[in-house]
Design a protein around this nucleic acid. Structure first.
Length: 428
RNA sequence: CGGGGUAUGGCGCAGUCUGGUAGCGCACUCGCUUUGGGAGCGAGUGGUCGUAAGUUCGAAUCUUACUACCCCGACCA
């Protein structure tokens, strides 16, 4: 991709209504634009990151044996009445009528639709366990959307639902999802905690949240300073107790003391048990030919929220510092004087072609701007590796390789071939 | 929904107190010169000042109502 061709409107100044760093940087780096409160358009650069995270999630879900489906965003009232949630849900459930005055809602979650699907099509315990997932836009009319895509009303989510013949099998599916979530977040290179949680309004038995640790996180969690233990502070507080009073107390798991941290909830896994299947008559025949209520689990990951969370954890005063695996491009070639100096332009294009053919995702900054402008933009959008071709190339045959993280800067390299050698090594 | 705040060109802002018909920086367009840390000179484009009503000879500015957006809180599979 050539910089002069990509739709990438970067901003020098941070828009006034962006408070947290990830929101500011996503706007400044030309990743998103707001349409209305809590609702955003993803621009090419942001979409690249979103898709990368989506694909990592998809790969790990597929590897776990789950199967992808795609359910509708618009759902009929009747299904929601079966679980009594048409009444129970508040205004966060966006309702509307079609031309025949039938009631519908925009799906904030899909227990009803998936349970309906399974009860109509799965009849035997032999077809279980079954784990179906989708990656889809959800809509929740949040009381107060905030922090850009971190808490939007419309957002991209991976939600999956497991169907099991009994509690033990459900537990197995649950643990498999827990492992899968760990793999996903570890691949994304994010620091996280698994937090014991209240299973909340959705009901059910076991429930754990996955939190990416970040200063601007909306949730407060209590972590042990010397073990993996973490728990939602709500579960520890007594009547009228202050969150800060927990700091320094002995950890409930008996190891170390409590440390209060801020987290962004990017995943939540539940053992629903029989609640939904019971309400919706989702049964299968067991090996004795008896009808059994299906045990369900549900597992969510906020894909769009992960984009913001990754930025919250990886930035400096200059901009975003993408973990390589989700960077919108892997290499940025900064050609100074691209439109003027044919030798530089040719070298830049050669490197671009070669790296592209080696399988790298490359962007070439071919704009007629000075070094400063290009470097500032490069730092803002946070591409891991920058190759800088300028006067030193025409004069001394030298090219600079600069890592965005500033910790592994390569410096001047004495010819183009050496660069390809470097990238071959990188690849292995 | 309670509390606080904002609304002037794509972005950041001044002008509002003290009414006189809109300005600055950046961005954008054209030309020339530039190109290793957000370039320079010259010439341009772009705004019913959130909406509506009112006061006034005259409203971005004063009054009233409304709307949108942001922050804090309550809420959140």
């Amino acid at each position: 991709m050539f910089w002069s061709k990509i739709f990438l409107p970067t901003l020098k100044d941070s828009p006034q209504d962006a408070e947290v760093i990830s929101h500011q940087l996503m706007l400044r780096a030309g990743m998103i634009r707001k349409v209305t409160s809590g609702i955003y358009t993803w621009l090419p650069l942001g979409l690249r990151v979103l898709k990368k995270i989506e694909n990592i999630v998809r790969e790990e879900m597929d590897a776990s044996g789950a199967q992808e489906v795609l359910m509708p965003m618009v759902q009929p009232r009747e299904l929601w009445e079966e679980t009594k949630r048409w009444e129970k849900m508040g205004p966060e459930l966006l309702r509307f009528q079609d031309r025949h005055d039938r009631d519908f809602c925009l799906g904030p979650t899909h227990e009803e639709v998936i349970t309906d699907l399974v009860r109509n099509n799965v009849k035997s315990y032999k077809e279980l366990p079954l784990n179906l997932y989708q990656i889809q836009t959800k809509f929740r009319d949040e009381i107060r959307p905030r922090y850009g895509v971190m808490r939007g009303r419309e957002f991209l989510m991976k939600d999956s639902y497991s169907f099991n013949i009994d509690k033990d099998s459900l537990n197995e599916s649950y643990l498999l999802m827990k492992e899968t979530y760990k793999k996903i977040i570890e691949r994304l290179g994010l620091e996280y905690k698994i937090v014991k949680a209240d299973s909340g309004a959705i009901g059910g038995d076991a429930s754990e949240e996955f939190h990416v640790l970040a200063e601007n996180g909306e949730d407060t969690i209590a972590v042990s300073d010397s073990s993996e233990f973490a728990i939602n502070t709500e579960l520890l507080l007594g009547e009228g107790e202050d969150i800060n009073s927990l700091q320094g107390k002995p950890s409930p798991d008996g190891t170390g003391t409590i440390e209060i941290r801020k987290g962004i909830e990017i995943g939540h896994i539940f053992q629903l048990g029989e609640i939904y299947a019971d309400a919706m008559n989702a049964n299968v025949l067991d090996h004795e030919g008896k009808s059994q209520t299906i045990f369900m689990g549900c597992y969510g990951i906020g894909i769009s929220r992960l984009v913001a969370a990754a930025i919250e954890q990886n930035n400096d005063d200059k901009g975003i510092i993408w973990p390589e695996i989700i960077a919108p491009f892997e290499v940025n070639i900064i050609a100074i004087g691209f439109g003027k100096d044919k030798m530089i332009a040719q070298a830049a294009i050669d490197i671009y072609d070669k790296l592209s053919s080696m399988g790298y995702e490359v962007i070439l900054d071919d704009r007629n701007d000075g070094f400063g402008t290009k470097m500032k933009d490069a730092e803002l959008i946070g591409i891991p590796i920058n190759i800088i071709i300028g006067k030193q190339y025409t004069e001394k045959n030298e090219i600079e390789l600069r890592h965005r993280d500033g910790q592994s800067s390569i410096g001047m390299i004495d010819d183009i071939e050496t660069i390809f050698e470097y990238f071959k090594k990188e690849n292995n």
